[in-house]
Design a protein around this nucleic acid. Sequence first.
DNA 1: ATGTAC
Length: 482
Amino acid sequence: MNTIPPQGQQPPYRHLVRLPAGDLSVYAGQELFAALDYKVFEMANNNLQIPGIRYMSYTPDVHVGVGTCIGTTAVWDEADGYVSPSIVGSDIGCGMRVHLTPLHKDDIRDVKLRRKLVKTIEKYLPMEANQRGHYGDIRLEHIVRKGLHGLPKKYIPDSYTPKKSTSLSHVERSKFTYDEEVLNLVEEAAWHRAHRQLGTLGGGNHFAEIQTLEIAESSREIAEAWGMFDGQVAVMIHSGSRAWGGYVSRMSSAAIAKAMHRLGLGTSDPNLKFAPLEHPEGLHYVNMMYSALNYAVVNRHLIAYSIREAFRDVFGPACEFRTLYDLMHNYAWSEQHEQHGNVFVHRKGATRALPAGHPDNPKPYQETGHPALIPGSMGTSSYIMVGQSGGYDNFYSICHGAGRARSRTATKRLVSLSDFEQALGVGTAEEVVVNQRSLESIIDESPQAYKNVDEIIDSVTGAGLAAVVAKCKPLAAVKGAK
DNA sequence: ATGTAC
């Protein structure tokens, strides 16, 4: 294994790993790189055997997943390219959303007020497993076909909307267009389930957090242009496409497995599924995946709408709730790159962070670059970043979070309830208020389950991929039940 | 991740 410092970069942050099947770029500081599980390299070697792969890299938060690591960027030429449901992952369209309020952290310094806020959020946002969403009046068909543009107008309120633009322009993409014929094959039960679940958070690492911003001095100008200020209360949401994405992933993976058998394709890992983009099974997956991306962006929009209702209850109806941004970290789509032309880019647990002036920035962020939203673990900070030109070589991919350090079962063995309470500051004035009555039920989400997000962020900034605009400190967290 | 599961 060679560690070659690319030209013009600090040696420790990018490692070129020459594997038997091809080259892998790993963006990670020296210590994180040295600590990587050898299994992530085995996995890379399998992924690199998919025909025609042009580029593959890992982010510093990389860890083992099913078929492909979480933290992967993998690129094909669009012509004769391949698509892989394993390099998208099963929570298709999973991603982050941030809203800005006019409140200052001093406005919710009182622990009791934070409790009240969390309780009120629970009134509007269902979080029990199997609990149905509050959006039965919305036609699921419109959502999966048209994304945010399929929403009834009343769900796109003015105060959700920064002046002189619409909240629909403050998202990575508001609508995915595809061959809607594929929807005819979806089973009735899947429609039904997904309709019931619309606007719900889900379990596992999904969350909604009330946070307060600390602006990075070196990015103050950008922060102000984005409407952010020191001490501002913001809401960060992490969720995906719920059972709809799971259904798409399961059905397509089964169909693609059959196609692979027919075509004589495969690697030593039976969980790594892929098909040529132009074959019926590949095309079908891409179409269905886009329906799930539409579902996911609407789901986060509606979760935010529910939380906005709670803020209006507690702080009055004048409390603004502006959309800062919404973006994904599990998806594949076409992009144009200066040097590479039309490419098909997969990101699994990787966030796109475009720099200032890049033409793919949505209009409101054309001049600054768009916000890249990076969650930490519960009780630790999250980050709002912006891409730098140094991201060019990596197709502008950066990390997607802290990255799991140990499995859920290992975490439950290792972490005691009092460890977890201490991490959340339970009993102190700074307590991160959590909605779950029993912390024990979410102990596998304790900070000890994750890597230190600050080190991950250091790797990203050190490599010149992105810069920190604001650090987001948690004040309260809302987690779904298993 | 998921109304899991060859």
